[in-house]
Every structure is written in C-alpha cells, then in structure tokens.
Amino acid sequence: MLEMTDLVDLALLLFLAVLAITIAKQRNLFVVVIVMGFYSLVSAALFTVLDAVDVAFTEAAVGAGISTVIMLATLLMVGTEEKTPSQPRILPLLAVVVTGAFLVFGTLDMPHYGDPQAPIHQHVAPRYIEVSGDEIGVPNIVTSVLASYRGYDTLGETVVIFTAGVAVLMLMGQALRFRQRDGDA
C-alpha cells in the first residue's frame, strides 16, 4: 500500500525526470541553466523528504544558487545557442543506454530502500549511535562522525575544495591578469 510520503517521493522523482528530459532536449543554454536551477531545487526538496537536511541545504545554496549564477556568467562568454548536431549520433545513445542498463542491473543487488538490516546500518553505525554521546558529547551524531570519527575524510574534502579553488584562481585569474597587462601596453 502506498503511503503519503511515497506519493511525495514519486511526485518529486517524476518531476526530476521531466526536468532532466527538458534539459536534454532544450537547445537554448539560458533555458538549460535556469531549468538546472529548478532541478537542484527539486533535488533539495527530495533530500528534505529523505531527512537529509544537511545535503538539502548544500544543494539549494550551491546547485540552485551559486552554480546557476556562475553558469550564467559563463554563458556571457560562450553565447546561449547550443550547436545542433549535423547527423543523428547512434554511438552516444548506445553508450548511454548500455551504461544505464548496467546501473539498473547493479541496483538489483542493493538492499531495499529503508531496510534496517542493510549492511551499512550493521557495520559501525550502531557503535556511533551507542557511544558517540559519551565519547564526543555532541547531540548531532552526523557532526560527530563528519568532524571527529571521520575527521581525515573531511580534511580530505576540504583540501579538495581548496585545490579546486586554487586551480580556478590560477587558470582563470592568471589569464585575466595577462589580459589586463596587454590592455595597458
């Protein structure tokens, strides 16, 4: 029997699929960027329904907010019309269908959605729930895991963001400086 939350999930997933097809079919890149913003916002709603509020925050702020703005700025440079392919391309379609089929095949082995007996809930999660209150003393277990138990991973993630930022600064900030120097000369 379908419950109310299942209906909400289904509606949101259906909406995501419609938005994804719109993005794929649309040739005007301005429309694509705006619809991708919608896609992120609906994803954020889906994450909220799944009780992943942290992820929803991030998706709404980055996906619907900052990355939309940055892609719009990119469109100023590259124009808004996507080039239409001269002939229908069979090979990319084949690659997408085969990869998709493998992914769906892969999900058949996964535990059912929300299954409490799933391996991920049997490994270290019970220990975190049992003793993190005494060991870390932080009510939010997600924060305990991210910042303390898995502190190495989070340090790695921060270094990834740092590296990405430095790469953008070096690649594009540098080009900008050269252009300004050329302009002065």
Binding site: V62, I66, V69, I70, A73, T74, E135, I136, G137, V138, T143, S144, A147, S148, G151, T154, L155, E157, T158, I161, F162, A164, G165, V168, L169, M172, G173, L176
Partner: peptide, 27 residues
C-alpha cells in the same frame, strides 16, 4: 572534542565561503 570540532568546522566554513566567493568574482 567540542573545541576540536568547533575549530575544524570553522576551517571548513572559511575555506568553502572564500573558494565560492573567489570563483564567483573571477567568473
């Protein structure tokens, strides 16, 4: 643990804010 989590989260927050803002300024 409280002190450590406060400091590392602050570090993450500072890096994320500034990377995002710098990227926007460059673009």
């Amino acid at each position: 643990q409280h002190l450590g989590i406060l400091l590392v989260e602050l570090g993450v927050g500072i890096t994320v804010t500034t990377v995002m803002t710098s990227t926007f300024f460059i673009f």
